[in-house]
Design a protein around this nucleic acid. Sequence first.
DNA 1: ATTTGGCATTTGGTATTCCATATCCCCTTG
DNA 2: CAAGGGGATATGGAATACCAAATGCCAAAT
Lengths: 226, 226
Amino acid sequence: MRAHGPLKTSRMSETAYEAIEGAIVRCELPPGTPLVDRQLSEALGVSRTPIRDAMQSLEAVGLAMRVRGRYAVAGFDVEDVRELYQVRRLLEPAGLEELARTWDEETVDELAGFFDEAQRPGPPGPYEDYLARDHAFHKRIVSLTGNSRVKRFYAVNEKQINRIRHYLAPGYEGRMTEVVSEHKEVCEAIGRRDLTAARAALIGHLEAGEATMITFLAQQQEPNEG
Amino acid sequence: MRAHGPLKTSRMSETAYEAIEGAIVRCELPPGTPLVDRQLSEALGVSRTPIRDAMQSLEAVGLAMRVRGRYAVAGFDVEDVRELYQVRRLLEPAGLEELARTWDEETVDELAGFFDEAQRPGPPGPYEDYLARDHAFHKRIVSLTGNSRVKRFYAVNEKQINRIRHYLAPGYEGRMTEVVSEHKEVCEAIGRRDLTAARAALIGHLEAGEATMITFLAQQQEPNEG
DNA sequence: ATTTGGCATTTGGTATTCCATATCCCCTTG
DNA sequence: CAAGGGGATATGGAATACCAAATGCCAAAT
């Protein structure tokens, strides 16, 4: 029985995936929320098939999980934060080391001046803008590895970190100005052609970020791991 | 219309996935082979739905890909080998560094003697046994990171490398004895509690492996990247 | 009142049907 | 004979139907 025109605009699986992923990352669907295909099917106006495709993908990137057969939004805890930041400390310095190896002057200059443009003095802009700029910087560093597998792995990692950022906000913006100065420290070291210092500054920055996130998460009376 | 009892034994998606994945890794389905859901559906005796689930997973781990909408077994080339080994050089030393940090005597002894047992002198056993032992060694090192995300990433990486090993065999077994001695070098350094040397030996081992694989692959008149 | 058995509901998995698009082949036409 | 059109086929995507297992609830019995 055909209900109505199903509007085969594009891949409904991808549309559904992005809708659900966005809702999970923004914590509109909090950790532990059951993901019931029939409900989501009705809510998004598509059939169960693309929804189940999307849920499979969400499970693959660790945003959803199956607990005794039932799908639910994945939980996270302090140990996840440790893992996520360990991955960053592993991948991002690798980008800098590749830069040290190849030493492309143009790229060095690009990174050294990454925050020059659109960097107004005084209070930084809205949180979302700041997050986007932050992410662009770190993503650019990882891209220096030129390794597509590393980049994909990093992207999944970042998605999970971003979700915890959303979970912790508001209150988490407090570190914004601190992070900006840490970024500048990395960029200045790159500008001085001192990649050893840049690497150290980057790792310090990541360690500070991990510590902050763990502190906030522990305060929040950490929820259970999914 | 119900054809016959479909035997809902367990998750047919996983069964189908493992069947197809195995065939791809063993190169029974060579790179470029079209993966047609209806064909596989008939071949494996299940409907299209679990097959399509499996193909989605295969695409996620890089063993299959979609070229203009059609699924096919992913190809690979020298650049893939570089990426795959760069990932290994990134992850495996991280395991040793974690061991250096925590310095668990029991684990050190375990790794130092990893190849003592069942290591008969003279010619090594069958290639498959050797591969399994090799993989167990490196996997154990990566597991020292204690990072589940790293371990999953590494496992996917290994699956892809293993496929290329199968693709290159026979002839590729020639490096077996060489690899065994390189492994022993790593283990001996660990036994001497010299993790710096162990790290160096491990990286050298990986670089040798990459060079060998690239040589063999280049000889084989490299196929096109999927 | 508690426990237990069974039925209704929920939910995920699989099969089947329907549909859209792309590709290929043959036929027509200039 | 070549080029273009049109239908047949192949193939993937989505919707729906069907099924099994798990869950929960309610009633009945002790």
